[in-house]
Amino acid sequence: MIYLLDANVFIQAKNLHYGLDFCPAFWEWLLENHAAGKVASIDKVGDEIAAGGDELTDWVRDHGDGMFLKTDAAVAAQFGAVSTWITGQQYEPAAINTFLQVADFYLIAHALARGQTVVTHEVPANSAKRIKIPNVCSGLNLRFTTPYEMLRREQAKFVLGKKP
Rank of each mutant, 00 (worst) to 15 (best):
Val45His: 01
Ile131Tyr: 14
Ile11Pro: 05
Glu28Asn: 10
Ser83Tyr: 08
Ser41Thr: 09
Glu154Arg: 14
Leu56Ala: 08
His110Glu: 10
Gly46His: 02
Val45Glu: 05
Asn141Cys: 05
Phe79Gly: 10
Phe105Ser: 10
Gln89Tyr: 10
Ala109Pro: 10
Val9His: 00
Lys44Leu: 12
Ala25Lys: 05
His17Trp: 03
Gly37Pro: 09
Val136His: 02
Pro134Tyr: 08
Val82Gln: 04
Gly161Gln: 14
Val118Gly: 01
His110Phe: 06
Leu151Ser: 01
Asn8Gln: 07
Ala128Val: 06
Lys157Met: 14
Leu69Thr: 04
Lys70Phe: 11
Thr98Tyr: 08
Leu31Val: 06
Asn15Tyr: 04
Leu69Cys: 06
Ala156Phe: 08
Ala76Val: 09
Leu4Arg: 08
Glu48His: 03
Lys162Val: 13
Lys70Gln: 12
Asp47Arg: 13
Gly52Met: 10
Gly161Arg: 15
Val45Tyr: 01
Phe99Gly: 13
Leu31Arg: 12
Ala51Phe: 06
Lys132Ser: 02
Trp85Asp: 00
Phe68Asn: 08
Ala128Tyr: 07
Thr120Leu: 09
Arg114Thr: 04
Ala74Arg: 13
Asp6Cys: 06
His110Tyr: 08
Asp21Pro: 02
His121Tyr: 08
Ile2Asn: 13
Phe144Asn: 10
Leu151Met: 15
Leu160Ala: 14
His121Asp: 04
Phe144Met: 02
Ile86Asp: 14
Ser127Arg: 12
Ala103Phe: 01
Tyr18Met: 07
Trp29Thr: 11
Ile11Ser: 04
Phe105Gln: 08
Thr146Leu: 06
Val123Gln: 14
Phe22Lys: 07
Ala94Gln: 12
His17Tyr: 13
Val45Cys: 05
Val123Cys: 05
Ala81Lys: 15
Gln78Phe: 07
Asn97Met: 11
Ile133Arg: 03
Leu5Ser: 02
Asp58His: 12
Thr146Arg: 09
Leu112Trp: 06
Tyr106Gly: 02
Asn141His: 12
Thr87Ala: 13
Asp104Tyr: 03
Val123Thr: 12
Ser127Ala: 09
Asp54Leu: 02
Glu122Tyr: 05
Lys163Arg: 12
Glu32Ile: 07
Leu160Asp: 04
Val123His: 11
Thr145Trp: 00
Ala40Gln: 10
Tyr18Arg: 04
Ile131Gln: 11
Phe144Gly: 01
Ala76Lys: 14
Ile86Phe: 12
Tyr148Arg: 11
Asp47Val: 11
Tyr18Val: 00
Leu31Pro: 10
Phe158Lys: 04
Leu31Ser: 13
Ile108Glu: 01
Ala36Trp: 06
Gly80Phe: 09
Leu20Arg: 10
Phe158Tyr: 05
Ile96Cys: 15
Ser127Asn: 06
Arg130Pro: 05
Ala128His: 11
Asp6Gly: 09
Ala7Val: 01
Lys44Ala: 14
Met150Ile: 03
Met1Ser: 13
Ala128Thr: 09
Leu69Ala: 12
Gln12Tyr: 05
Ile86Val: 15
Arg61Ala: 14
Ile131Glu: 12
Trp59Glu: 00
Ala50Gln: 14
Gln90Val: 05
Val118Trp: 03
Tyr106Leu: 11
Ser138His: 07
Pro93Cys: 13
Gln78Asn: 01
Asn97Val: 07
Leu151His: 03
His34Lys: 11
Ile131Lys: 14
Ser41Pro: 10
Ile86Met: 15
Asn15Pro: 02
Asp62Leu: 11
Val102Cys: 14
Ala7Ser: 12
Thr146Glu: 00
Ile108Trp: 04
Phe144Cys: 02
Lys129Leu: 09
Pro93Glu: 13
